[in-house]
Amino acid sequence: MVGRKPKPAAMHELEGTRNRHKNKGREPQFSGVPTCPDHLDDIAKEEWERVAPELLAAGLLTEADGSALAAYCAAYSRWINAELQLQQNGMVFHSPKSGYPVQSPYIGIANTSLTLMRQFLTEFGMTPASRSRITVMESDTQDKDPFTAFMNEIGAIEPDDEQKNLQ
């Protein structure tokens, strides 16, 4: 496939571009809340517990996305473990055969894990660049009736006027 990867509908809705989305209504809709897999280690499970509620609140996580989030969390754990090994053992060691300095294999593990993490973070809209393309609607507009929300959106009602009308 040539060109950019298509974004999911949830990302279009958060960006405010859902109406222009050419595949509107044709994208599969998944539901459910994924559970943290048992095979993840403690560091990965902590990352799951940190990130999953945020993604759920943004509407970017369903049962079908559980594997992708688990893969991100596993890569995160691998990165943390590699960084800890680098702190403990250093970035260079001396080869037992030749005695020459050799780069630690944990540098490659850390770099590969960071690459995987960045790819998953971008998919979920969790990097500064991918997040900057998203415009989140104010949550208080969901509580208003559609007419008031429309009038407020076009600037016909100032927020202070709305508060006066409620009193």
Rank of each mutant, 00 (worst) to 15 (best):
S31W: 02
R133Y: 04
Y100D: 15
Q163L: 09
A52P: 05
R131V: 01
L40V: 06
R4N: 12
L55D: 03
I80N: 08
T122I: 11
Q142M: 07
L56G: 04
A75R: 11
A70Y: 04
T62M: 02
A9I: 07
S130M: 07
T62E: 06
K24P: 00
R4I: 06
L14M: 12
E27Q: 13
A74P: 00
T127I: 00
E123K: 13
E13T: 11
M151N: 12
R18P: 00
Q119H: 12
C73H: 03
A82E: 04
I109S: 11
D161W: 05
Q167I: 07
S95L: 04
G3V: 02
D145R: 08
N81M: 07
H21R: 15
P101G: 05
E47N: 06
K22W: 11
A82V: 01
P128M: 05
S104D: 05
R50A: 06
D145V: 01
R131W: 00
M1D: 11
T17F: 03
E138C: 02
G66W: 07
N89P: 00
F120C: 13
H39E: 13
L166K: 15
A9M: 10
V136L: 14
K5E: 08
N19D: 13
A52D: 03
A82Q: 01
L121N: 07
A57L: 10
D41E: 08
Y106P: 02
S98K: 01
E162W: 09
E153Q: 13
L14F: 03
Q87I: 08
R26V: 02
L55F: 03
E54V: 11
A52C: 06
K45H: 03
W48Y: 06
T115I: 10
T141Q: 11
L121C: 10
V92H: 12
V33R: 15
E162V: 01
A44G: 12
M1F: 07
I157M: 06
H94A: 13
S130C: 06
A68T: 10
K144M: 12
R118T: 12
A71W: 05
D38H: 09
V92Q: 15
I109V: 15
A57W: 04
I107H: 00
A44F: 06
Q119V: 05
R26M: 08
T122H: 12
T115A: 13
F93A: 09
R131Y: 04
